[in-house]
């Protein structure tokens, strides 16, 4: 749920410092970012610029050293580890570069995983899985295991898993980074459709300019700060 100004995500004055031995590594410094509901934002920057760290903070996988992260009006940086896990399950869909599917589960069971964290019955879960797989065009491959699917298909299963709980926010960490151009285009088409047709708010970390052009807004980062912020 967006705030009064229509912002779903609000990052305010966020610092992130990692400690390695006696050395402090400042990855993010005083970062501020607002993301309206329904936006498709591409986060770009060189390696080490802090974009993945920012994505982790938005996903509630990490906490800022300073500052606040508010999503749907909730300060997620103040939630306990346990509540954060529950919050992630309800509000965030994650898409990984290397798909991160469970090799021993077929496509349908992989997509069903986040639904195990809900109160849905087995029948209801099955229906949700069918819908999610049909959205990504893989209903006919529901019984196939990851090793039996191409990279593009595995990523589509990953996306189905990310959207099956109808999350508030879809966070994609280089979703086309491991794919060839054709498969990348298919995945980007899918993400665009999810954004435009279903109004999903998507934040995508990418190195790929072509992928970033599919977003409605591109934010560049360097050395832990936003450098440019423009419509695609």
């Amino acid at each position: 749920m967006a705030d009064a100004n229509g912002n779903l995500v609000e990052v305010t004055g966020v610092d992130k410092v990692f400690h390695r031995g006696s050395e402090d590594i400042h990855v993010l410094g005083g970062l501020c970012l607002k993301i309206p509901e329904g936006e498709f934002l591409a986060l770009m920057g060189p390696s080490g610029s802090g974009k993945s760290t920012l994505l982790n903070l938005l996903a509630g996988l990490d906490r800022p050293t300073e500052g606040s992260v508010t999503i749907s009006g909730e300060r997620i940086d103040q939630l306990s580890e346990r509540r954060l896990a529950g919050w992630r399950a309800r509000h965030v869909g994650l898409v990984f570069q290397f798909y991160n599917l469970m090799p021993t589960l077929n496509a349908a069971r992989n997509v069903e995983l986040p639904l195990l964290l809900t109160h849905l019955s087995r029948t209801e879960r099955k229906k949700h899985v069918e819908v999610a797989l049909s959205v990504v065009g893989l209903n006919h491959r529901h019984g196939h295991y990851p090793r039996q699917l191409s990279g593009g298909e595995q990523q589509r299963v990953g996306i189905a898993r990310a959207i099956v709980t109808d999350p508030t926010l879809l966070l994609c960490d280089e979703p086309t980074g491991d794919l060839d151009r054709k498969s990348s285009d298919e995945i980007l088409d899918l993400l665009q459709a999810l954004n435009q047709d279903q109004g999903k708010t998507i934040i995508m970390v990418t190195h790929d300019n072509d992928a970033a052009k599919r977003a409605s807004r591109i934010v560049h980062m360097n050395k832990g700060k936003l450098t440019t912020d423009a419509a695609a």
């Binding site: 896990a85 529950g86 399950a89 994650l94 990984f96 991160n100 995983l113 964290l117």
Partner: peptide, 14 residues
């Protein structure tokens, strides 16, 4: 590690 981290990221508790 990959599997456990993924499950935790999806919202599975410790």
């Amino acid at each position: 590690t990959r599997e456990i981290a993924t499950l935790r990221a999806l919202g599975f508790k410790t």
